[in-house]
């Protein structure tokens, strides 16, 4: 690994100040993506600002029909949380499906969201559940937060403090994992929220998106059959050694049907 400086501030204000001090600084949350990326020199921050000592960023609570999950909450803690299991079991399952136990013990929801990997699970979770990303200065709806592959609406000196997820009537996440990495080849979150059915897809295209054709069909008839004959346009889908665009388009529908079936019964 190359040389860099390291700071571990204990407040959000101090972390923001540290970010502003050097253009080549970067926050590290769980580090499950950033540290391997640095080893490969795909990222070369001069200063790492570790936010693991900021206590206010940890924890899960229920507040006004929503769950508020601190940005530094580990995947394992989301998966094992009795609050999450009770109110949004589909989200607990999503967290449980990330990587492996050691990655889940370290990786964080805020880090995953800020990184916006096109094959990550949480972007689909947040968009599907109509969540809001809370930062040190504003709130951003998940629909507007994830802008492109590894791109988000965050400013360079902005820090995610929490995500707020309204408790849905029902929701579940189905994914076809890459057998080695457990990243989503395709992952689909389907949720029934206050303003209707939402279907969010990760892994298939460069950025998480809502499958509106599936949403409309499920709004009319919430059954696997209702979407069986809908064509998914996979022209813009990812194509790599793991799956062709055509296969990904197929998987979107298979995962969606399984999700509908799982929350219908």
């Amino acid at each position: 690994m190359y040389q860099f400086d390291y700071e571990a501030p204990d407040s959000i204000e101090a972390a923001v100040a540290a970010l502003r001090e050097n253009d080549e600084s970067k926050l590290v949350a769980g580090g499950m993506t950033l540290l391997p990326t640095m080893k490969l020199r795909l990222a070369r921050p001069e200063v790492l600002i570790d936010i693991n000592n900021i206590e206010s960023l940890f924890g899960i609570s229920e507040l006004e029909e929503s769950l508020v999950i601190g940005a530094m909450t580990r995947h394992a803690d989301v998966a094992m949380s009795s609050i999450v299991q009770n109110f949004i079991p589909g989200l607990a399952c999503l967290a449980e499906s990330i990587g492996d136990p050691q990655v889940r013990n370290r990786g964080t929801i805020g880090g995953s969201v800020a990184n916006n990997d096109s094959a990550a699970d949480y972007p689909a979770g947040l968009v599907g559940l109509d969540a809001t990303v809370v930062t040190d200065r504003r709130e951003i709806s998940a629909d507007n937060f994830f802008t492109d592959m590894f791109e988000t609406a965050l400013e360079v000196d902005e820090i995610i403090t929490a995500v707020r997820i309204p408790i849905p009537q029902r929701a579940t996440y189905m994914k076809f994992p890459n057998p080695a990495s457990r990243y989503a080849v395709v992952g689909v979150m389907i949720a029934e929220v206050s303003d209707g059915i939402r279907v969010a897809v990760t892994g298939a295209s460069p950025c998480v998106f809502r499958a509106t054709v599936l949403e409309e069909a499920l709004e009319e008839d919430f059954t696997p059959e209702a979407i069986a004959n809908i064509a998914i346009d996979g022209v813009q889908f990812n194509e790599d050694i793991h799956a062709s665009a055509e296969f990904r388009a197929h998987l979107v529908k298979v995962m969606a049907r399984r999700a509908v079936l799982a929350i219908s019964s």
Binding site: L48, P101, Q102, R106
Partner: peptide, 9 residues
């Protein structure tokens, strides 16, 4: 908690 010590400073 078990973690991977190659990915922690």
């Amino acid at each position: 908690r078990s973690i991977k010590s190659c990915t922690l400073l």
